[in-house]
């Protein structure tokens, strides 16, 4: 199944190189929500994430015009998304867009409390831990795909995932002042 998807995406990339805008639209809409979600969670700010979204796809298609690293289009795209987010986080605070202050989430108080606690707990973790948790445990990427994104080996990603899960549990316990 995965190989079928990979070869279909290779054909879409080839169509993009040949000038087919429809291929671009297909690849964009296939991953746009996931890239935006990943960037929003990592940056903690939707406005910044929307700015990054454009940059990610522009860089990805630029890369597709010439050399492209080994691996799936999806892994390539998220590798770029991660780099764009890290660049964004390194920018001076004034250059980054700010949220209005109020969370843009719906839902009842318990849901909002949970989201705030998860967001705070995530922010306490190193960026690599956040990335493995968001990609493996939320987006359900395979360890192999995350290894391609992070430029690490599969065993190294699995070890990091375990440490990240432990760190998240401890951070959530602190957020609530009790054990989860």
């Amino acid at each position: 199944m995965e190989n079928g998807r990979e070869s279909e995406e290779s054909r879409l990339v080839a169509r993009f190189r040949a000038g087919d805008m429809q291929a671009v639209e297909t690849l964009f809409w296939r991953y746009a929500d996931a890239v935006l979600a990943y960037a929003t969670r990592l940056l903690g700010n939707r406005a910044d994430a929307e700015e990054v979204l454009s940059e990610v796809f522009l860089r990805a298609f630029e890369g597709c015009m010439g050399y492209r690293a080994e691996g799936t289009f999806k892994a390539w795209l998220f590798r770029i998304a991660r780099n764009c987010c890290i660049d964004r986080l390194r920018q001076p605070r004034l250059l980054r867009l700010e949220d209005g202050g109020e969370p843009a989430w719906g839902g009842d108080t318990a849901e909002i409390e949970l989201r705030v606690a998860v967001q705070r707990a995530l922010k306490q973790l190193p960026e690599e831990y956040q990335t493995v948790l968001l990609l493996c445990d939320v987006e359900e990427f395979t360890a192999k795909e995350v290894a391609q994104i992070l430029g690490r080996s599969v065993p190294s990603v699995k070890g990091m995932l375990y440490r990240a899960r432990t760190a998240l549990r401890d951070a959530l316990s602190e957020e609530w002042g009790e054990e989860t």
């Binding site: 746009a32 935006l36 939707r46 606690a117 967001q119 939320v138 989860t180």
Partner: peptide, 27 residues
């Protein structure tokens, strides 16, 4: 439990048609 809380607690925004069209125009 921590994994389940993470899945329930993360924001899941979706790209609006307007934003999507803007990005595609840039491309």
């Amino acid at each position: 439990q921590a994994r389940q809380l993470l899945r329930q607690g993360v924001e899941t925004p979706m790209v609006s048609e307007q934003i999507g069209e803007r990005v595609l125009r840039h491309i």
